[in-house]
């Protein structure tokens, strides 16, 4: 077995056998030259790295105006890309499209939850989203020092949560 890269002489880690026109061709390549040849390699990438790669890869050169933004918490997709953390549960819907490929890469191609469902799941996403919206309004009311409105909103949130 040959141990050096055909191209640069470094230790080869990729062995490739191609059949071209009935002719068997063996290639020995190092990781770098294999990548240059367009042969993808599955390497050891920790999850944090995966996220970073994804963030860097899709960063920049985008139309600011069309950027997805969560109407509930105000987070933009580029903010998520910078920090790596989402702002609120609604982001999963607000960023559904750009998040999908990231989720698939991070979870072995999975697209749907297959595990436990909470007993009270029927109380539903709608209710959860409604409370989130109320909380965002509450935050705004407090910022505006509109305490009357804040008190009303707080009562509404309590009512929702105990229902």
């Amino acid at each position: 077995m040959k141990n050096q890269c055909d191209k640069c002489g470094k230790p080869a880690t990729v062995y490739l056998t191609e059949i071209v026109g009935g002719q068997k061709i063996e290639k020995h390549l190092c990781e770098h030259c294999a990548a240059a040849e367009g042969i993808t390699i599955k390497s050891n990438v920790p999850i944090s790295q995966l996220l970073e790669d994804f963030i860097l890869q899709s960063a920049g050169g985008e139309d600011e105006a069309s950027e997805p933004t969560c109407e509930v918490c105000g987070m933009t997709f580029s903010q998520f890309r910078q920090g790596g953390r989402l702002g609120c549960p609604n982001d999963y819907d607000a960023f559904a499209k750009p998040l999908a490929p990231l989720l698939e890469r991070a979870h072995e191609g999975a697209t749907h939850h297959m595990g436990k469902v909470p007993h009270r799941a029927d109380s539903g996403q709608k209710k959860q989203a409604a409370i989130l919206r109320l909380r965002a309004q509450l935050k705004a009311a407090i910022a505006d020092e509109d305490y009357e409105r804040a008190a009303v909103l707080r009562d509404q949130i309590k009512e929702f949560e105990s229902s």
Binding site: H112, K116, Q128
Partner: peptide, 13 residues
């Protein structure tokens, strides 16, 4: 909780 994505977390991983 999300019907498609399950328990929702701050980091999608």
């Amino acid at each position: 909780f999300h019907s498609r994505y399950g328990y929702l977390t701050a980091c999608p991983t």
